[in-house]
C-alpha cells in the first residue's frame, strides 16, 4: 500500500495534466499545479532550513574543522530572519513589501548578497580561460573540430580577425573571419542546437511516460518503513 498509493497519485496527476492541455475547462489546472508546488516548496523549506541549522550547530558542538565559520553562517541566517520577518527598518512598516527599498532586509541584499553574487559570477571569466587552455587541444578529430570552431569565433570577436583577412576583397567578404564567425553561428550552431532540442524533448516525453506509468519508481525510495 505504501507504494501503491504514491504510484497511483503520480499516474493520476500526470495523466490529468496531459489531457488538461486539450480540454479548455481544465486549461488552468497547470497553473494550479504551480500554485501547489510553491506551497509545498515553502513547507519543505522548513525541512531545509532545519537541516541547515542542524548541520551547523552539529559542527559547532563537535568542534569540527572550521566550526567558527558555522557561527557566521548561523548568525547570518538568524539575522536575515530577524530583519526580514519583523521588517526592521522598512519605511512602510510591517504592511509594506519586505523587499521595499531602504529596509534592512533589502539593504543586506544590495550590499552583501549582490557583490558576492556578481563576483562569484565574474569568476567565470577566469574559468573560461583555464578551460580553453586545457580543453581545446587537438587530441583527436572531435577535439580538433571543437578547437577550430572556438578559435574562429574568438578571432571573429576581436579586431585581429578582421586585420588578418582584411585583404579579402569586399565581394568575397564572406571569407573574412568575422563574417565566417557569424555564418557559423547561424548555420552550424543552429543545426546542432536544433538536433539537441528535438532529442531533448523526445527524451522528456519518454522519461515522463516512464514516471507516469510507474516503470520508473526510483524517486519513491524503498518499499519498507521509509
Amino acid at each position: 500500500m505504501k507504494r501503491q498509493i504514491p504510484l497511483f497519485i503520480t499516474f493520476f496527476v500526470g495523466t490529468l495534466l496531459i489531457f488538461s492541455v486539450f480540454i479548455p475547462p481544465m486549461e488552468t489546472w497547470g497553473e494550479n499545479f504551480t500554485l501547489f508546488f510553491d506551497i509545498i516548496a515553502v513547507f519543505a523549506f522548513f525541512l531545509g532550513a532545519g537541516n541547515l541549522v542542524r548541520v551547523h550547530v552539529g559542527k559547532l558542538k563537535k568542534r569540527k574543522a572550521d566550526w567558527g565559520f558555522s557561527i557566521v553562517t548561523l548568525i547570518g541566517f538568524g539575522f536575515m530572519l530577524f530583519v526580514g520577518l519583523l521588517k526592521i527598518g522598512n519605511p512602510g512598516g510591517i504592511a509594506a513589501d519586505v523587499t521595499a527599498p531602504g529596509s534592512w532586509f533589502q539593504e543586506m541584499f544590495n550590499y552583501v548578497i549582490n557583490p558576492l553574487q556578481s563576483t562569484m559570477y565574474a569568476l567565470l571569466a577566469f574559468f573560461v580561460a583555464s578551460a580553453s587552455y586545457r580543453a581545446f587541444r587537438a587530441k583527436n578529430r572531435e577535439a580538433t573540430i571543437l578547437l577550430i570552431a572556438a578559435f574562429v569565433i574568438l578571432l571573429g570577436r576581436t579586431p585581429l580577425g578582421m586585420l588578418l583577412t582584411a585583404w579579402i576583397p569586399d565581394s568575397l567578404s564572406f571569407f573574412q573571419i568575422p563574417n565566417m564567425a557569424v555564418w557559423i553561428m547561424n548555420s552550424f550552431n543552429l543545426a546542432g542546437q536544433r538536433a539537441i532540442l528535438i532529442g531533448i524533448s523526445l527524451g522528456v516525453v519518454a522519461m515522463s511516460l516512464r514516471l507516469i506509468l510507474g516503470v520508473e519508481r526510483t524517486y519513491l525510495g524503498g518499499d519498507d518503513n521509509g
Binding site: 580561460a129 580553453s132 587552455y133 587541444r137 578547437l147 572556438a150 585581429l160
Partner: peptide, 14 residues
C-alpha cells in the same frame, strides 16, 4: 586583450 590572451593560451596548450 582578454580574447587574445585566451587564444594565446589555446596555442600554448596545443
Amino acid at each position: 586583450l582578454a580574447h587574445v590572451v585566451i587564444m594565446a593560451f589555446i596555442v600554448i596548450g596545443n
